[in-house]
Nucleic acid binder design. Structure first.
Lengths: 337, 337
DNA sequence: TTGTAGGCGTTATCAT
DNA sequence: ATGATAACGCCTACAA
């Protein structure tokens, strides 16, 4: 049997409440008994039962992090781990623990979120999402449960933190144009994902500002975050398209694209310049080193937790949005010698 | 105020126990009242409080996963996420949730583990570790708390799952030797980590079997899992060493090494063949594609959870070990044209 | 400063 | 088949 507050009380010949006060480090207690109780607690190797404590003061110090996508794949992208690291680092610092829920399907997500919100085990939720249609968000809003979305939603009544993806697309395209490119492919547009839409819109805006007509055939669609850049690019080149630059929505796509370009007997960046987004660790080690956009996923995570803590801390609802700045990291894959 | 079992009972004009029976789907209840209660539960949007439930039946359906290293870095390596995915996928399937604890220091780890074991919130623990001296393990053994280590420990009274790192080192070295290499550098040996020691020993064994004298100067030390392969290799080459092959303890090290080799005006694999370990997603996209060893981190995770569940399920302690097979994935970085 | 008693939401044991 | 009652371990008025 585990040792409880009562065991301590008996041994110390005090009441359970006194022991409780010692645990809470209450000032309403004499130094003497405090010492005595503490000593006995140590002797008996006592540790408070968090479950019982949670039951009475309705606080678990646990937040849930819901990750989308197949459990088998969602964590594979370097973007997610970094995000998770950011959340965890901040959460731990504030005494919170993280319940990780990576779900495979929307149904699973709905069930999981329901459990987490109503089960009373998590005090708040951080949702990683980028899909437009997210029933989970509506569900949470309706239940008035504290949560923060990493990504962006159409619903204005949510707290979110995100990069400015429009700006990212705009800056990348502008950079390419300034380097003299007029024919720039956009690799990785995925209609269901706002991230890629925003980026594409930024790209269009840049073209427009420089009087370059937008050519929809330069847009290569794909599932977001996948490594089929090779196949996509290969097919694209096989159609006889010949851009001088490629902006990929993800570094992994870019790596694949570069491979296809090389295989087609073309050089990067001399024939085709390529840039990615996310600045994965290997971007710097690739051959050629890949120009990318550092989106600061870690900061995205820390900021999300901060925001969540703010919400959890007050019962008046506020709706905040935070933009984490991204920075262009220029490397050889876009710099012609 | 949240709706409880009592609210339901009142509204349904039954006793709380009856409601509880409905929740538990007990057979000792009439179909009629069951329907009635279920209807009211739905009407009032009732959801059982897991905390209260946990308090009485001492089961939270939560396991803890303790990750070492700086919160800022530990999750960065593709190896960990994949592992986590494996654990999560299996755990979710079995109705368990995961509490993620990534700790930065040994002190933090000790504290965290203490909380998790005594707090009553996790039923079991999975420990990611590879360092030799792990006080946490001793602590857990002493407390007779169910846990599984991913990696290996000196202590025989622990359940662990791991790859056969000796075999990995042996197979890689044998492969190199069979390709005609006689001078093979071993990059990434880190004395404190058994993983690298085992791999190095496997490497030595292979050399020995082929009567190749072991040259300690061919061993390049480093911190495990770090991306300074570039610097290490650069310094190594600057010393005038000229191996024909390099076995790196990690793909990231290998990528860095290749970069340094290229920069020294040498070719891979023609001048120096390079292989890594872990088979990160990008190994296939690198230029040249990197020969590596697939360690099946996902399986490591699923197996670890299975093992943990076995332990948690019975109160007689058993000590099992599982070896997850690894496979050599040969790519261009070691294949001379 | 310390003790008593009631309650947090559920489940389990006995009755009925 | 259903209800009353007592836990589970802790906290917190309210008393003393």
């Amino acid at each position: 049997m585990r040792v409880t507050i009562n065991d301590i009380a008996k041994k110390a010949k005090v009441s359970p409440s006194t022991v409780s006060r010692v645990i809470a480090d209450s000032p309403r207690i004499s130094e003497a008994t405090k010492e005595k109780v503490l000593k006995i607690m140590k002797e008996m190797n006592y540790h408070p039962n968090m479950i019982a404590r949670s039951l009475v003061n309705r606080t678990t110090q646990i937040i849930g992090v819901v990750m989308p996508g197949m459990a088998e794949q969602s964590l594979q992208h370097p973007f997610y781990p970094e995000l998770l690291g950011g959340i965890a680092s901040m959460a731990n610092k504030q005494g919170y623990k993280i319940l990780l829920a990576n779900v495979s399907t929307v149904d699973e997500e709905r069930e999981m979120v329901k459990e987490l919100t109503f089960g009373g085990i998590t005090e708040g939720l951080i949702l990683l999402t980028s899909r437009d249609d997210n029933p989970t968000v509506e569900q949470l809003v309706k239940n008035n449960f504290p949560f923060v979305v990493i990504g962006r939603t159409e619903n204005p009544y949510v707290n979110w933190v995100d990069n400015d993806n429009f700006l990212i697309g705009y800056q990348l395209a502008t950079y390419f144009i300034e380097q003299g490119h007029r024919s720039i492919a956009f690799l990785g547009y995925s209609p269901g994902y706002r991230v890629t839409r925003d980026r594409l819109n930024g790209y269009k805006k840049a073209l427009e500002e420089h009087d370059i007509p937008f050519d929809s055939r330069m847009v290569i669609e794909s599932k977001f975050i996948s490594d089929n850049g090779y196949d996509l690019m290969k097919a694209f080149l096989a159609q006889g398209k010949s851009p001088t630059g490629v902006i990929a929505c993800d570094d992994l796509l870019a790596f694949g694209a570069i491979k296809a370009i090389h295989q087609a007997g073309l050089r990067v960046p001399d024939d085709i310049a390529v840039a990615g987004i996310n600045n994965v660790p290997l971007a710097d080690y690739y051959n050629p080193p890949l120009t990318s956009v550092k989106i600061n996923a870690f900061s995205l995570g820390t900021k999300a937790f901060e925001m969540l803590q703010t919400i959890m801390g007050s019962n008046i609802r506020s709706y905040n949005q935070a933009i984490i700045p991204a920075e262009l990291v220029i490397r050889s894959s876009t710099q012609r010698g």
